[in-house]
Amino acid sequence: MNELFTLPVLLGVLYSGVRLATPYLYAALGEMFAQRSGVVNLGVDGIMLMGAFTAFFIVTNTGSLALGMLGAMLIGLLMGLLMSFVSVNLRAVQGISGIGLYLFGLGLSSLLFKRLLGSTKAIDGFQAIPIPFLSDLPYVGDVFFKHNALVYVAFALVPVAAFVLNRTTLGLKIRAAGMKPEAADSLGVSVAGVRYFCVCLGGVMAGVAGASLSIGLINLFQENMTSGLGFIAVALVYFGGWTPVGVMVGALLFSMVNAFQLWVQVKDILPSSYRDFVVMLPYVLTIVALVFGRRARQPTALSKPFSRGEN
């Protein structure tokens, strides 16, 4: 047990935690915007898969990471538009249409993968960029400043998201649309427009989240490679109480628990009969997150379609 609390192990857990948190962070921040505007998009995982495939496909063929990323964002935008159309214009039950979007993304990414690539081959993805000076800091440098660009951008987006939500006129419209759309509407704010924007933004971010797996962390594509990561991102939005910082804390906590369980096994710290409990930890945490999520701050109009004059 003592071996667990050695410095290398703790630093390893922190490093892996930061790295693993990246796809969650992109997906959950995007989903947070959608939910703050009043739309639950359960299709995040499907968008991620499409983003992951698109980025991987482009990079395999062109070798350009930037083009791959752009492609993932574009496909995320398109799927976001589809979700917006279904949930805003057609006023569909969002839980169901989100699952539909997920299945669509899952099926289409598998089909395209088979048709267009057939087999997978590792690519050269984003490389780690040590940040000058900061990466030389003892301990901290190793944990925080020796990642690839996608990791830095993900964490940089947290304060940006908080700023947009709390300090801009757009953020004010988003918050109002999610809490009391009829009030926003009565002041001439286009609730549909705000929701379109947020769901599409969430789609773009989910596309990036998928790309961060296929051309950032893993550098390979496989069918259903997210294996439900997008759903955990949705849970993290609840866990994080719909705030960017809360979402980040949740993503870090979740990925550190994951990193922790891997280290426990690598270091062979617990007897193997207890291992199953350690493997269970992340899933227990997900459930805890959903049960004890700070409901009080839930956008009050979450998942309710809005149309003028109905209240």
Binding site: R167, T168, T169, L170, G171, L172, K173, R175, A176, M179, K180, A183, A184, L187, G188, V189, R297, T300
Partner: peptide
């Protein structure tokens, strides 16, 4: 909007003197 401040409720939907910033 109950969870917003009075000023935020008043400013909602109006253009701001500081462009995109509130």
């Amino acid at each position: 909007v109950p969870a917003l401040t009075v000023a935020e409720n008043v400013a909602l939907g109006l253009s701001s003197s500081r462009g995109p910033l509130l």
